[in-house]
């Protein structure tokens, strides 16, 4: 049953792939704007690269949250998902996994191309990808709580950013911290461990909170 949720959402994402791609383009464009705006100062670019890439990833993840529940809510399939004979926790987890596969993973895989624009070395590019692969599922998990809470509200998108961005701050700090540590040749184990800890914690708690929020929003 869990597999069906992932398959379903991946199929739907494929059918509306323009939406999915636009999130990735957003990420690409935002990150590319910085070298254009700042100029070719390589040292400066290398200095700001972790922060810029990570902030852009945060914003792109937040934008992709709109797709998570809103469409299903409108056509009534979300009601049907709530009535499937399995824990809602797993339903949410499946939907978040599908969202991450079409937004977080391509975003992480695309990041080396952007890193090169900022003059990052090969080793740092690898750390960037790893940190994004660890961090973007957290963004999707935490974001799902906000998406469920703001379901069907007027001004939902703006409200979503107010709710979700503060909760994203730890991921931003640890994620860009890991990349930063790699640039300066310092131990990055600390940042990556903390990122891992946040990931495990949000895997345990976020789907539960999202399930509760969905039940509340659909009543």
């Amino acid at each position: 049953m869990f597999r069906w949720i992932v398959v379903r959402d991946l199929t739907l994402a494929w059918k509306s792939r323009v939406d999915v791609l636009s999130t990735l383009f957003f990420f690409l464009i935002v990150v590319s704007l910085f070298p254009l705006g700042i100029g070719p100062e390589t040292n400066l670019l290398r200095l700001i690269a972790p922060g810029v890439v990570w902030v852009a990833a945060l914003l792109a993840s937040m934008l992709s949250l709109g797709r998570l529940f809103a469409n299903d809510y409108q056509d009534g399939t979300l009601e049907q998902l709530l009535l499937t004979p399995q824990p809602l926790y797993l339903v949410v987890l499946g939907k978040v996994l599908a969202l991450w596969l079409v937004s977080g993973v391509p975003l992480a895989l695309m990041s080396p191309v952007l890193g090169i624009q900022f003059g990052l070395s090969g080793n740092t590019l690898f750390v960037l990808v790893v940190s994004l692969l660890l961090g973007t599922p957290v963004l999707a998990l935490i974001g799902s709580i906000g998406a469920a809470l703001t379901l069907g509200l007027r001004g939902g998108g703006l409200l979503l950013s107010i709710l979700v961005l503060p909760l994203y701050i730890p991921v931003l700090i640890f994620g860009s911290g890991a990349v930063d540590a790699s640039i300066t040749g310092m131990g990055l184990q600390g940042s990556l461990s903390l990122l891992g800890a946040v990931l495990v914690l949000s895997l345990v708690f976020a789907p539960w909170a999202t399930s509760a929020a969905l039940r509340i929003s659909l009543e």
Binding site: G190, S191, S193, L194, V200, V204
Partner: peptide, 16 residues
Amino acid sequence: LGIAAALALNAFQDNL
């Protein structure tokens, strides 16, 4: 929770 705590403790020994 256990894994998260272990990872966090591991990180505190490092330099964050």
